[in-house]
């Protein structure tokens, strides 16, 4: 890691819940997408994974949840550990059982199932009807709007409701860790705030650790405790969320603010970043 922000490594005593060690991902045997990504999520933390389109955020999450294989992607180097156990090459079903679940980009609700049926499919890996019922009520307590729409087909609900449904569905598996991919996508700012607020409460009250891939750097860094910035399949910078927020380069490249005031992101584009970070 060649980050500009100097922060202490994650303390050795608190062993991270999830650690990704120097993984390389290749699609279709030829397209190198991740070129050695390492990151750690402590127990109970919210960690943000930031970067532009095509930086490798989604691929990183899919490598962890092992949804890569259906897209002909493969982890060719490095390792992934969850709660001290190696989990690369474990299939998704097994990972969900162990408490790590991904909420995919673009919601992906089951359109022809009702909201309630959607939520119940999240409990597929679990047994015990009474407990599942209780958790359903818990999800409704976090997302009262879903309760109102419990009998509507998910395909007919709004984007915000679908995002809530997707998060609620993941919650039904009783996860220890959630991988959220771009939860703010296509939502009005107010809804984005509402959803992040709920994610924050889930983290605080239910103890769900969160790894969050986001393009909305501003919101992500307000809710996260730690952040990694990905570019071209590499981590180019990492640090505490507060430190990243105040870093001049991050301000300039990702938040659109620089020493000389607000500027268009367009004007500072790649050549400059390349010079400073990737040279």
């Amino acid at each position: 890691m060649q980050g500009h922000v100097q922060t202490a490594e994650v303390p050795a005593a608190a062993r991270p819940l999830l650690s990704v060690n120097n993984i390389e991902v290749i699609y279709d045997h030829v397209i190198l997408v991740l070129k050695g990504v390492s990151l750690h999520v402590p127990k109970g933390g919210i960690v943000a994974l930031l970067g532009a389109n095509g930086a490798g955020k989604t691929t990183t999450l899919k490598a962890i949840s092992n949804l890569l294989r259906t897209e002909r992607g493969d982890i060719t180097k490095g390792s992934i550990e969850f709660a001290g156990e190696p989990i690369d090459h474990m299939n998704t079903n097994e990972l969900v059982r162990r408490g790590i679940i991904q909420v995919m980009e673009g919601r992906h609700c089951f359109e022809h199932l009702t909201i309630e049926e959607n939520l119940l499919t999240g409990a597929y890996t679990r047994r015990g009807g009474a407990e599942v019922r209780r958790d359903l009520e818990m999800v409704y307590a976090y997302f009262p709007r879903l309760k109102e729409r419990r009998t509507s087909l998910a395909g007919y609900t709004s984007g915000g409701e679908q995002q809530m449904c997707a998060i609620g569905r993941a919650l039904m598996s009783r996860p220890r860790m959630m991988l959220l991919d771009e939860p703010s996508m296509g939502l009005a700012p107010q809804l984005v705030e509402e959803i992040f607020e709920i994610v924050h409460r889930l983290n605080q009250d239910e103890g769900v650790s969160i790894l969050l891939a986001e393009q909305n750097t501003n919101v992500a860094l307000r809710y996260a405790t730690y952040g990694y910035i990905l570019e071209n399949g590499r981590v180019v910078m990492d640090g505490d969320a507060a430190a990243l927020r105040n870093n001049e380069d991050v301000k300039e490249f990702y938040l659109g603010v620089s020493a000389s005031g607000r500027r268009s992101y367009r004007d500072v584009k790649h050549y400059k970043r390349r010079k400073r970070w990737l040279a």
Partner: peptide
């Protein structure tokens, strides 16, 4: 439960996979 999972797979098999349906 399995019938529901089956309909879920029919709708979106990636999403079904992601919630742990084999």
């Amino acid at each position: 439960k399995i019938g529901r999972a089956l309909r879920a797979v029919a709708d979106d098999n990636q999403a079904a996979l992601s919630v742990g349906i084999p």
